[in-house]
Design a protein around this nucleic acid. Sequence first.
DNA 1: ATGTTAAGGTTGTATCATGCAACCGATGAT
DNA 2: ATCATCGGTTGCATGATACAACCTTAACAT
Lengths: 171, 171
Amino acid sequence: MHLPSINGKLEIRMTFGTGVAMEMGDEVFDAIEMEIAIFMRRAEAVRLAGLSGIELDRSAYLLLRYLERKGPVGIKALADELQLDISTASRQTAALESKGYVERMADPQDARVSLLRITDGVPAMLTEVRRSRKEFYAKLLNEWPEEDCRKLGELLGKFNRTAEQRQRRRG
Amino acid sequence: MHLPSINGKLEIRMTFGTGVAMEMGDEVFDAIEMEIAIFMRRAEAVRLAGLSGIELDRSAYLLLRYLERKGPVGIKALADELQLDISTASRQTAALESKGYVERMADPQDARVSLLRITDGVPAMLTEVRRSRKEFYAKLLNEWPEEDCRKLGELLGKFNRTAEQRQRRRG
DNA sequence: ATGTTAAGGTTGTATCATGCAACCGATGAT
DNA sequence: ATCATCGGTTGCATGATACAACCTTAACAT
């Protein structure tokens, strides 16, 4: 795999079957089960190691990133999107507000909600944090072939999408 | 993607390049960075959802699993292996001891250490937990092609090995 | 219009995983 | 012998999270 061919790579893959998961080897899930458990601890360690110079933990990061993309929204919408308990979202928001990363504005349509909006410096900060994290992973994986990096990102994404979808269907 | 073709799937992909990691596209790490952040939250949610009937959280699971494989060891060795602070390992061990999953025995060679050993029922319990987790993932990923499942396990493992190695080199 | 139900948020309380620092007793090296 | 080191425990702190009780405001039904 990953032969250093000079000019290009041609990959042909064929899968036969119904297309729907036939019975899949159990060993496949042995690995997934174990590696996910380990991965979690690993990633936790990374978190504590303080990935970026800027102090911005995972949850805050995801929260701000969402506000950046989806404009001012209320806590409920935020919590739904991030699949967090409202109380958790509320506290996290409060923390970010006290740090000056988030502002509240009354919703003219509904006096119950207070819309959340990121403050001016935040987008630049997010960019920096993102850069720093990417650099971290780029260093960590600097000996991996590009294809594996790409595939890892892709499969994690796919996993996340699958899990989100399932959780919504139930929750 | 994943079209329900009747007889099979033929996929052709071509990539040009040297094959060896030149400067790797930055986008690759965009995805990794983001998806890992999300993955962590996802997996956290899974934890809280109570994966298995048996109450055994991730840390306890990894700890017991290690003791199962590596026989009686002291807290320090355990902490080193799991890359945990000794205090954390100490507390987790205490918790497991109080639940009767772990016993201590004095080390004849060194009165400071107390060797940890899993109790009789534990292996069966671990097997059951493992089965239950695997089932969970198998259900979650039941629409994935087997190849993707396999690859996900493989890459997570590779990631974990890489991260472990790096951390040891420094820590 | 008015009273009941629902929805958006906040706050108290609890749990879990984790680390650092202070400490204790046993070891070992000089 | 003594003093640094090592294994381990415990106090304190933090962060992420949930559930439940509560408050305020909105929506709806009669």
